[in-house]
Amino acid sequence: MNWSWILPPSFSTVSGDIDGIYYVILWITGITFFITEALLFYFIFKYRHKEGRKATYDHGSTKMEIAWTMVPLVIVLWIGVVSKGVWDTVKVDVPAAGLEVIVTGKQFEWNVTYPGPDGALGTSDDFETLNELHAPEDQPIVITLRSEDVIHSFFLPEMRIKQDAVPGQDITVWFEAIQPGDYTIGCAELCGIGHTTMGGTLTIYTAADFQAWSSSQAQQQQP
């Protein structure tokens, strides 16, 4: 059983930043946790009722109130400001695509549409895969995320990517993988009876291998 608070390994250009914010928060909350819980247990032990003990008649201290208002406020706002940068990188600033695909979630599968040899989506040489996303490393993969029925959530845990797929909307998600391998696609939003079966595989190739795969797929799926 893994009791560690260390995150599992991640493999995208932004995952280091995301994991970094997590560790910053882990440090801050961890220290706060230890100090406050230690104080709590220490006070419980030290001030437990004993014969002759009298409590101090003390209504408070405005100085302390200000202190423990301002310090947490500054800390959490700082965390917010630092987080904003990473959030903007992931969700707001979409880079120019190395590869564009369409991912459509439906009960209970992910359909991925690739642009085919002409490099453009929406043309007759587009081809599809079922529950598989194949992509090259070191290039931004820009996904147009759709749903055919209910809300699903496109989750690439090792890339630290998650985005709800909402029916009626085209939502842009992007990532850039830094290492070839087989990774996980999951659905992270309850979507019905088969929610548990909506897993898939993300396969990252070197650029050359991806070219080879893409060409052979396009040939196979020629109408």
Binding site: I25, I28, E37, L40, S83, K162, A188
Partner: peptide
């Protein structure tokens, strides 16, 4: 008090939008 400290502190993780990308849902 003890448990609320834990629950409250864990909330900070999900309040941070980039971390929430991973831990949401």
């Amino acid at each position: 008090v003890s448990m609320f400290i834990i629950g409250g502190l864990s909330g900070i993780f999900m309040a941070s939008t980039p971390v929430d990308i991973y831990i949401h849902d």
